[in-house]
Structures are given as C-alpha cells and as structure tokens.
C-alpha cells in the first residue's frame, strides 16, 4: 500500500515562514488538488515533500516509511516523482534520450502506458528532435512524461498547465488519466480552476502558508474565507 501522509509539515527560511502545520493524506490511487494564491507556499511544499528542500518541522511518510528530509534521489527511488513548474528537460539531447534517461535514472523500467502517452501528446513522431527545439507546450509535456517515465507510485505535479494554451490544457487531463490508469496517485498544484474542478474530487487550499480548507471543490470553493483569499486574484485562472 503506497499512501502519502504529511504530518504538521513546516518550512521556514531564516525568520521567514513559508508554511506551517500542513497535514493531509493522499491514499493509494488517489487524486488531490492543491490551490492557493501566489506565494502561498505551494511549490515549496512540493520541494519539501520531494526532498529538494529540507523541512523545518513535521513528517512526510510514504507507504508507512518516514522519508522526511531524505535526499531527492532517494525519495524518487522510493516511488515519488515530481514535475517542475518551468519546462525542465535535458535541453541539448533528443526526446528519445530524455525519456531513456528518465527510465534509467528511475531504475524501475518503463511504466505501462508510456508509449500511449507519447503517442497521445504527439511526441512519438518527434523522438529524434532536440528537446530544446520543441514548441513550449510540448517541452512542458515532455517534462511531465519524464516524471511518469520513472514508473512512480505517486507524482507531484507543479502547475502542469501553466504557460499552456487553452487547447493544450486538455493534455494535462489525458496525462492524469493515463497516470491513474497505471495505478499511480497524483497530487496536482494548479492555478487553472476549471482544470482543478473537472479533475479533482478533493482539494486543499493553501493561503499564506496555512491550510485553509480541505474537501470537495464545490464545497471548498464556496467558502467565504477561500473566496476572500482569492480576492484580487480573480483574473488569474
């Protein structure tokens, strides 16, 4: 059973508090959305869970195993993959080589659904193109595919739709679909409210480093404190 449990997690930079007392559980095969205004600490949360940055307090437990402050590669090897907000690929090599590296570094072999994913996003005909030369949207999808190519049990997606054209955002839905078909659970940080509404049965709201709400989107997004937190960010989504 691979469940991700986060217990009273906190992160401070010097005297600056990024977030504190964050707790939630992502069950095996689950799908959880995380929203919040800019600067709420969402990316840092992904960084701390995935071992990129150190936690100041609290615990991250993966499948019953305490992985708090384990190095990023160890966390990844235990089955927790993550994507990056900016396009993040090995820019000087081909699409094929990027995928090959992701599979080899992950050490678990290619996951079921990888080929289907590449076909769907139109990466298969471009296997031999240098990843830096791909259109922005495709580079971003390649980054997502690479996170999945290590055959993880859980993926954390950091704003997968940011920078994508509206038409391309459907690809994120497809990505999540294929990932979940493979039995992988997903945590998705996103600004696109439509996307969150159509994908996530449950969302967390982060505001100024604290967990404001946790529940089904329809319910959570109707709460006055959540609406207040988003005031002034109306144009964002």
């Amino acid at each position: 059973m691979t469940e991700l449990r986060v217990e009273s997690l906190a992160k401070r930079f010097g005297g600056l508090r990024v977030f504190q007392n964050i707790g939630f559980t992502l069950p095996e095969g689950g799908l959880l959305g995380v929203i919040g205004p800019n600067g709420a600490g969402k990316t840092t949360l992904i960084n701390v869970i995935s071992g990129r940055q150190m936690a100041s307090a609290g615990k991250v437990v993966l499948g019953g195993r305490d992985i708090t402050n384990q190095p990023a590669h160890a966390v990844s090897r235990l089955g927790l993959a993550r994507s990056f907000q900016q396009t993040n690929t090995f820019k000087s090599v081909s699409v094929n080589e990027n995928i090959a590296r992701a599979v080899r570094f992950g050490g678990r072999g290619a996951p079921v659904g990888l080929t289907r994913m590449m076909d769907t996003f139109g990466l298969t005909p471009r296997l031999h193109e240098i990843s830096d030369k791909l259109p922005y949207g495709l580079q971003k999808m390649l980054g997502l595919v690479m996170a999945f190519a290590s055959a993880p049990k859980i993926v954390l997606l950091d704003e997968p739709a940011a920078g994508l054209e509206r038409a391309e955002r459907q690809n994120v839905d497809t990505f999540v679909q294929i990932v979940r078909d493979a039995g992988t659970s997903v945590l998705i940080v996103e600004h696109d409210m439509d996307l969150i509404r159509r994908l996530c049965p449950r969302i967390l709201v982060l505001d100024a480093g604290v967990l404001l709400a946790d529940g089904p989107p329809a319910e959570v997004l109707a709460r006055p404190d959540v609406i207040a937190a988003y005031l002034g960010e109306a144009g964002e989504a």
Binding site: P71, A72, H73, S76, A81, R82, F90, E97, F105
Partner: peptide, 21 residues
C-alpha cells in the same frame, strides 16, 4: 554516459528522476 551527461546538463532534474548524483 547518460548519468554523467545528465549531471552535467541538469543536476536537479537528474536527481529528481532518481539519480544519486
């Protein structure tokens, strides 16, 4: 080759993909 090139080009990405850099 893949490990070294991955580290050379994008150490953070390589590490997050599971490479013990």
């Amino acid at each position: 080759h893949q490990h070294f090139a991955g580290i050379e080009e994008n150490e953070i990405l390589a590490e997050s993909l599971g490479l013990a850099v």
